[in-house]
Amino acid sequence: MERQELLRTIEKALSEVLERPVGGLMEETALFDELQLTSIAVLGMLMSVEEATGISVDPEGLDIDHLRTLGSFADYVEAAIRAEEGAS
């Protein structure tokens, strides 16, 4: 999955869980501070991203640093995709 496609996938997931349009975000967009993401919304976003990408995320293994910005979460998802591809 290309980076831009992944960012669009995450934006779509954010729009769904926040129940409002979210678009044109920058990689530096702070998920909690700027978008007011809640812990419940994080779980919804994770499930949506898992479904769209085919990865499996263990919320217990997710660090707050992975969720600071759109870019840091995209980095985490890309690493999870590579790990699952390598395990196949």
Results as ranks from 00 to 15, higher is better:
residue 36 Q to D: 15
residue 36 Q to N: 12
residue 25 L to F: 08
residue 47 M to N: 11
residue 68 R to L: 09
residue 40 I to V: 13
residue 73 F to T: 05
residue 82 R to W: 02
residue 79 A to T: 12
residue 21 P to Y: 05
residue 5 E to Q: 15
residue 59 P to H: 02
residue 8 R to L: 13
residue 67 L to E: 10
residue 11 E to H: 09
residue 51 E to T: 11
residue 18 L to Q: 07
residue 73 F to I: 02
residue 11 E to I: 03
residue 33 D to R: 14
residue 77 V to W: 10
residue 26 M to S: 15
residue 1 M to V: 13
residue 31 L to V: 04
residue 84 E to V: 04
residue 19 E to H: 12
residue 17 V to S: 07
residue 29 T to W: 01
residue 24 G to Q: 09
residue 53 T to Q: 01
residue 31 L to Q: 11
residue 55 I to H: 00
residue 6 L to S: 10
residue 65 D to L: 11
residue 13 A to P: 11
residue 71 G to N: 06
residue 67 L to Q: 07
residue 44 G to E: 04
residue 39 S to F: 08
residue 80 A to H: 11
residue 8 R to A: 15
residue 39 S to P: 00
residue 59 P to T: 04
residue 33 D to F: 01
residue 54 G to Y: 03
residue 70 L to I: 04
residue 26 M to W: 00
residue 6 L to G: 08
residue 14 L to F: 02
residue 8 R to H: 13
residue 19 E to Y: 09
residue 32 F to S: 06
residue 52 A to R: 11
residue 7 L to V: 11
residue 4 Q to I: 00
residue 85 E to V: 08
residue 67 L to H: 13
residue 43 L to K: 00
residue 82 R to N: 06
residue 33 D to Y: 04
residue 88 S to A: 13
residue 68 R to H: 07
residue 3 R to E: 08
residue 12 K to P: 00
residue 86 G to M: 10
residue 23 G to T: 13
residue 8 R to N: 15
residue 75 D to E: 15
residue 82 R to Q: 13
residue 39 S to L: 07
residue 51 E to G: 09
residue 56 S to I: 02
residue 45 M to G: 07
residue 24 G to Y: 09
residue 85 E to K: 15
residue 80 A to K: 15
residue 3 R to Y: 09
residue 25 L to M: 12
residue 69 T to Y: 05
residue 12 K to M: 12
residue 68 R to I: 03
residue 36 Q to V: 05
residue 49 V to I: 13
residue 43 L to W: 00
residue 70 L to F: 01
residue 10 I to A: 14
residue 15 S to R: 12
residue 23 G to V: 07
residue 58 D to G: 00
residue 31 L to E: 05
residue 64 I to A: 14
residue 25 L to G: 08
residue 44 G to T: 08
residue 55 I to Y: 00
residue 75 D to R: 13
residue 32 F to N: 01
residue 53 T to L: 03
residue 17 V to Y: 10
residue 63 D to P: 03
residue 28 E to S: 15
residue 66 H to W: 06
residue 11 E to G: 09
residue 62 L to G: 08
residue 38 T to A: 08
residue 72 S to N: 06
residue 53 T to M: 01
residue 48 S to A: 15
residue 26 M to T: 13
residue 79 A to K: 13
residue 80 A to W: 01
residue 45 M to T: 02
residue 50 E to Q: 11
residue 37 L to P: 09
residue 70 L to N: 09
residue 28 E to D: 15
residue 6 L to R: 06
residue 75 D to K: 05
residue 77 V to N: 01
residue 12 K to A: 15
residue 40 I to K: 07
residue 19 E to N: 14
residue 43 L to M: 12
residue 47 M to L: 14
residue 55 I to C: 02
residue 81 I to P: 06
residue 43 L to Q: 03
residue 59 P to A: 02
residue 12 K to S: 15
residue 66 H to L: 01
residue 3 R to I: 07
residue 31 L to S: 10
residue 55 I to R: 05
residue 35 L to D: 05
residue 24 G to K: 09
residue 22 V to H: 06
residue 13 A to S: 13
residue 43 L to D: 03
residue 24 G to P: 07
residue 28 E to W: 01
residue 15 S to Y: 12
residue 72 S to M: 11
residue 23 G to R: 14
residue 53 T to G: 01
residue 27 E to M: 08
residue 34 E to S: 14
residue 18 L to E: 06
residue 8 R to Y: 03
residue 28 E to L: 12
residue 83 A to L: 14
residue 80 A to N: 12
residue 58 D to L: 01
residue 10 I to K: 12
residue 84 E to C: 01
residue 37 L to Y: 08
